[in-house]
Design a protein around this nucleic acid. Structure first.
Lengths: 210, 210
DNA sequence: ACCTGAACACCGTTCAAGT
DNA sequence: ACCTGAACACCGTTCAAGT
């Protein structure tokens, strides 16, 4: 209901911040066993509370999932920011760092990633938090494009549209990799890095100012 | 080509080819109401059989989902083949047709698309059919790249890797569109077409022979 | 050979009752 | 204010029994 981006510390009752505990447990179950195994009762079990307790913090299972997704987008945004913000390299290298960050997030959180991009429209309607979180990621891509344009590196055009092209390629690549759809090319870590480099090159060429 | 796997023809009993009927019903439920609503009992209901009947044709719910996914990949492959096969236009136009076909498939079957790229690795292990079906799509992309290379249009390099770049961009774009993540740029059909054109351009530039 | 109906374990959700 | 335990409807899955 409220925006929970800050570390607030509600007074511990039986279990401290149960909401946060449930979310952490949920992320754990999700990554360990997949969505099919993500049961509210199991999450409650892990948190050491009764199966009815989660309903004090989430309207239903959908709202709980939305909370996990929200966290997911904020974490992804953080990783992206770290990757592109702390580097004073050439733009090509920054783009590669961005790509690496995105792909590695997907590899580290494949199930979360799948849920983050599964029926978002519905979840955004019922959860303002999810909407804000997706915007955080979206804005990062747009900023990157606009920076590139202001330096004369990126072709002119609607920055939102060009940002979507970058996002699309990084996302698609990440999905193909975690779904093992790139075959032998990414079966090893070195292959993944090579794939990232190739994507970065194609993007850089394709987006560059002519 | 509409070659849809090996056609077995079990003789009609009470309901004709129940297996196929169940799959059609399943695809219907999935697209109408999403994965959460995809229940074997509901599918059986729609097919007019008891809730136990599906177990004569599928080991469990997972195997049923795998069957839907398999159909999904073959249909996607068909659409792609149609798009690139029947056109004698310039390669740029063919690429755009390919992109359109992919995106439109996603728009027409968003839930199926999400399931097709959700936990594929696990499903491929238990379902050879799914593996073959994904290969059918994968090969199409590779062929397209190799054709481009042989004509000197596409840069040299591992064709599988370059094929993955194309697939990645088209897939990512499709996901962003169906998840409403490209914002206003694709809220109307015209916006989607423009987005497709931009992606195609970037791809063509990025992949071209230098 | 193919399907049914009862049965079982388990989940999401609700609610009166506890601390 | 926050959590528990019983209760309910419904799902996935199994299996003996029907045609």
């Amino acid at each position: 209901m409220k925006s929970e981006r800050k570390e607030k510390r509600p007074k511990a009752y039986h279990h401290g911040d149960l909401r946060r505990t449930l979310i952490e447990a949920g992320l754990e179950v999700l990554e360990q066993s997949g969505v099919a195994a993500l049961e509210l009762r199991e999450v409650a079990r892990r948190a050491g509370v009764s199966h009815a307790a989660p309903y004090r913090h989430f309207a239903n299972k959908g709202a709980f999932l939305a909370a996990l997704i929200e966290v997911g987008f904020y974490r992804l945004a953080e990783q992206i920011e770290e990757a592109v913000g702390s580097v004073f390299n050439k733009p090509e290298v920054r783009l590669q760092k961005l790509a690496s960050a995105y792909v590695h997030f997907a590899q580290a959180n494949p199930w979360l990633m799948r849920e983050m991009f599964s029926g978002l429209t519905i979840k955004k309607e019922s959860s303002l938090g999810v909407h804000d979180a997706t915007q955080a990621v979206s804005k990062l891509f747009i900023t990157i494009v606009e920076e590139g344009q202001s330096k004369g590196l990126v072709r002119s055009g609607n920055s939102g549209e060009l940002a979507s092209v970058i996002w699309a390629l990084l996302h698609g690549m990440s999905i193909l990799i975690i779904e093992n759809q790139t075959q032998s090319y990414t079966s090893k870590a070195a292959g993944v890095e090579r794939m990232i480099r190739t994507c970065t090159q194609v993007l850089y060429e394709g987006l560059s100012h002519r």
